[in-house]
Design a protein around this nucleic acid. Structure first.
Lengths: 343, 343
DNA sequence: TAAATTTGCGCAATCGATTGTATTATTTTA
DNA sequence: TAAAATAATACAATCGATTGCGCAAATTTA
């Protein structure tokens, strides 16, 4: 095929072999009602002619694209990259392709991405929500069209959609209890938009741990920001102004925790002597900062696999009703020097 | 529209308004030859009926998808995430969507991804190559079909494709010269697959800087690995065995540099006193490791924008021949404590 | 050997939007 | 007011693959 030449179609193959296009079509998808030898000949000829199936035509006729949409807040984390790798593996094995987009943490772009997915007729949609998403009306057109929508990690508090996540409440409870056991009594909690389960659940777990250990919850010890590196520096400045100083910090992600630690250190605070620290996510940064950061680890790859398998299962059984059950994955608390009180 | 109901088509709209589907089609895309009032009525009715354009049919007829494929080695870096954000912004503004996939640094998956892109009939393809890609035959089907292919960052040494990258030779030269100026004479260079321009150019720049400063190039000082965190630890062990010890290390990426520094520090090497260090990419890690790491910074977002604009330009002028010229972007050397000899 | 199955293949409709080419209605020009 | 020009709309083919149905040939069964 030379530049600009016309694409080969099943009709061209049919004409060349003097058979019908229907047979060519069936042969190429290994339909049982086509003779083996005919199949071989057709496949061989198709290859020779540089045939490439036209997915537009096929999709149009079949009313399905074999594409799954994926909307995530950002791509730049090991966690997300792992999730995606897990999703891709499972979906590719099941003959689906993945259409990825990032919302950049804004509902506006999330809506726009969802619409793109709709126009491009994805067969299913997998979503991890942006910070400021207040409602999920933009996913209703999918439900109306019977296109499965699955949430993972950053889910929405609603029973209509299947969801995959970890027990953020329990993880935060454990990490807070750990800090308390190390002798902390005034624990700052840095977190983000309470619209997102991952952050509201962690705050709730933190509160419950305080309560169970007879510590009073203080609103003033909760800092809400966007958990960015810059926010961490600012949080440090807020902490420095607290009187008396707190004796521990539990940040809802590692990036923010690390930059917060850096600024505190620059201001003469000794870690972990003056202040214990804990983060969340087990980012590579945690093993670089000194002292190494205590954190919660959970496997993105596995979460991706589980979510994708759930999707496949729903696509395979589109006819029958599937209750939207939730899957809760494991995590582990990793204790490092940052949260160990020197005795 | 209720679950399972049939999708509204332009024929449904046409029937309801007792006009032809052709007019509906033209009205919906704001064709000048349709009366303004008719347009309004059609748009309104379409909205009321919950009409959603069928992209399969449209693409089939128009022979284009308005989708650009994007293949990158991995998604989990700030750099790549920025590149993608830049690409998305430009392409979305021009009514294109982006189909993203990661090769996970293997040629096998890169080929598989390319085929998926081909089957899904992308209108253009943007690629940053995997470590072990030895040839780019898998992109020829695109060229044959007159589908633009553009390489960025990890490009291929061949003039047939437009390429966007930074001057890796010069950057490496500068960083090496900087280390030499600080008094280094035996500089280790850690790098990856020499198949990739980014690494071979950096090695060449390193060599040239040595030469220009009358330092002999020593094969034994070059470590080739996959630049992962683990590889950094191993590199440190190799370095520890060198006798005499080198007096500086220039790593072709930051992640590897940082883990290498960590292991060296654990083994009693003082940084930067015993050994100067420099990395590449300006990863967030560079500001966390102690001492902070000297590195090369270049903006991914800008690279994405430039590459995408190049793509748009080629798509706009598909008829006319476009010479495959290369675009070389700016970078900056960021000097931090890791490469400053204490006097 | 006749009847019943099974195998192999073709016909033709279908999936929806697009668009070149009419055709009709309206406006402008002479 | 008739002719010319323009605006607005309709007709019908087209893009390629899929698939229900029908038919003939080959094979199996009775």
């Amino acid at each position: 095929m030379t530049v600009g030449a016309k694409e080969t179609t099943i009709y061209d193959i049919a004409a060349k072999l003097d058979i019908s296009a229907a047979t060519v079509s069936r042969a190429l998808k290994d339909h049982p009602r086509v003779n083996k030898n005919t199949k071989k000949l057709i496949v061989k000829t198709a290859a020779e002619m540089g045939y490439l199936s036209n997915s537009f035509a096929s999709n149009l006729r079949k009313k399905s694209s074999n594409i799954i949409g994926l909307i995530v807040p950002r791509l730049n984390s090991n966690f997300m990259s792992d999730v995606i790798a897990g999703i891709e593996k499972v979906l590719n094995n099941n003959n689906y392709n993945v259409f990825i987009s990032q919302s950049l943490e804004t509902m506006t772009k999330e809506i726009s991405n969802a619409n793109d997915m709709l126009v491009n007729r994805v067969d299913g949609l997998m979503v991890s929500l942006a910070y400021d998403t207040t409602n999920i009306n933009h996913f209703e057109p999918f439900v109306k069209r019977n296109i499965p929508v699955i949430f993972f990690d950053r889910v929405f508090e609603q029973d209509d959609y299947p969801q995959i996540y970890i027990d953020n409440f329990k993880a935060a409870y454990e990490i807070t209890a750990h800090l308390i056991k190390q002798g902390s009594k005034r624990i700052v909690h840095i977190t983000a938009s309470q619209l997102r389960n991952v952050y509201s659940d962690r705050l709730a777990g933190y509160k419950k741990a305080l309560e169970d250990n007879n510590l009073k919850f203080e609103e003033a010890l909760v800092i809400i920001n966007n958990l960015s590196s810059e926010a961490g520096h600012e949080a440090a400045n807020q902490i420095l102004k607290m009187a008396p100083l707190p004796d521990a910090v539990f940040s809802a992600n590692d990036i923010c925790a690390v930059s917060c630690m850096q600024t505190l250190k620059k201001n003469g605070i000794r870690l972990p002597d003056d202040l214990l620290f804990a983060g969340f996510n087990n980012d590579p940064l945690t093993c670089v900062i000194e002292p190494n950061l205590t954190t919660i680890n959970y496997k993105g790859y596995e979460m991706g696999e589980v979510a994708a398998k759930q999707m496949i299962s729903r696509l395979m059984n589109k006819d029958e009703f599937q209750p939207a059950h939730n899957l809760i994955l494991k995590y582990e608390l990793i204790v490092r020097e940052s949260s160990l009180r020197n005795k």
